[in-house]
Write a protein that binds this DNA or RNA. Sequence first.
DNA 1: AATGAATGAGACTTCATTCAT
DNA 2: GATGAATGAAGTCTCATTCAT
Lengths: 162, 162, 162, 162
Amino acid sequence: MARAAGVATGTVYLYFRSKDELLVSIFQRMMREAMADARTVLAEIDDPAEKLRRLARGHLERVGRDREFAIVCQVEFRHSTKFMEQFSSAELRDYLGVIRDTIAEGQARGVFRTAISPTLGAKVLFGALDEMATNWILSRRRYALTADADAVVDLFLNGVTA
Amino acid sequence: MARAAGVATGTVYLYFRSKDELLVSIFQRMMREAMADARTVLAEIDDPAEKLRRLARGHLERVGRDREFAIVCQVEFRHSTKFMEQFSSAELRDYLGVIRDTIAEGQARGVFRTAISPTLGAKVLFGALDEMATNWILSRRRYALTADADAVVDLFLNGVTA
Amino acid sequence: MARAAGVATGTVYLYFRSKDELLVSIFQRMMREAMADARTVLAEIDDPAEKLRRLARGHLERVGRDREFAIVCQVEFRHSTKFMEQFSSAELRDYLGVIRDTIAEGQARGVFRTAISPTLGAKVLFGALDEMATNWILSRRRYALTADADAVVDLFLNGVTA
Amino acid sequence: MARAAGVATGTVYLYFRSKDELLVSIFQRMMREAMADARTVLAEIDDPAEKLRRLARGHLERVGRDREFAIVCQVEFRHSTKFMEQFSSAELRDYLGVIRDTIAEGQARGVFRTAISPTLGAKVLFGALDEMATNWILSRRRYALTADADAVVDLFLNGVTA
DNA sequence: AATGAATGAGACTTCATTCAT
DNA sequence: GATGAATGAAGTCTCATTCAT
């Protein structure tokens, strides 16, 4: 981190109390950006399906922008249960909330099936996108991660059944 | 690990050459079990949709059986990119392969849409189930993880669209 | 050691209090044998020069008899200053004493130069033989160690000067 | 080592990758110094016998300079056969080579007996000096190690025979 | 404020020794 | 007595954090 920022190791500790605080800070900045993007989507788009598509694209665009950063998110953040518990409760909940609300909105408008729990739906979509991100990091091939967004959302919207 | 097994630290090294070998060993045992379960499902069931449902149930049942074990899988295994790269190539590929082949089989029979890439479909389903598992581990509530399987597969099969 | 003796590790501790005691015991047995050989030589031979030759041959024969054993002597015994201090004071002193006395005897008979300190002479001869042993252990070639004895003693007796 | 240098354990690892590398580094520095001293002797002195005397003095002076250092050389370096095999082949071979060549030179000039193998002669002289060093380390008395050099070389040159 | 060498707690591992069988 | 699996102290090494400059 210090090297990437072009400063000495000690300098980092002038701005962050500890490595954990640095990671939390990175995570929160990422989530703030994610939430800002999401709010823009919610404001600009009306159709719930299209909202999901745009949220998914935004998600993968964000992750795919910087591979190093993505590795931090997919690997470093998951080091300890303790750390995951801490952030999963607040910021991530809000992010999943946006997806959940969008699904609920679609149900209210009658375009989404009410048989689906919005909370569960949000987790499924998030889990699917997260898996795309993980695969992209671990893959030796350097394909455009964003390209997966539409396919994932198509599957999420319409299912695999013919 | 040693503490959990009620033995001294050194004892672990009588059975595993190193910590990595222990983790790999746990992972491989888990994957062997997963593949054995999966093969049973493939042999017993004919309908591709039902196969997916049974694979999903099996997956969450396995993870939900032992919380400690699940934590090792969801947290410890993701410590390092290097470690993940190592086994994501072999064992996990086979497991995803089972899902992929089932989707392809459904397409061949005309019950699944051919617009869906079986590989991507497999990742989506796996990612969704993995997210259920992670949420279950991090949740303070002690609900039955398996209960999510049907809802996830319903969503995967039919989508969210009304 | 236990493996070589065809017994279980624990069995060794029925006969020796500790690893150090075992090593000391081996060392003492070796020195007892060495002293016995040396006394035989002293009794059988009259000529001091011939005594030295026979002592040297005996030394290298003993070391060269069993390579594993020689490694223990040349490597294991020198692990710690503490250990070396312990045994160098007693048994080894007796062994060097035999060489020293033989040199002194030669001086008394007028066949060896009195300018040479018998104590130093004993160390020199021992050091030379010890170096032969060490070289033999480290060498990949499996030559007969004993063959060096005569050359070493010739050098010790007559020097390198023409 | 760290304690002797007055630093924390971890600090050593800023300068040496591992304990082995540290030992190798110490050994190589010692051999570099030894070879430099030896080359000076070879250049300054013409008489082979005098060369040997000066090489021996240099050897014992170097060892006798720092007791702690000498203990590392005589004890630590001989911990494992593997470690000894590694460097006995390269650096030590060069050092013995200098002695061997000096003996061969003496033979070529007719001042040393050709019956003596220069290689064996080198080992004998080295072994004798090494034994002096070991004795000095183990001795409780704090005599000047260098004083032995002349006596050892006199013995090496002229032998013990009257 | 910035630096980066130094720190030392803690992780992984070995191996001399013990002890239940 | 014999066994060998189990033990845990001690060794090597890492890396998050500190601190003198």
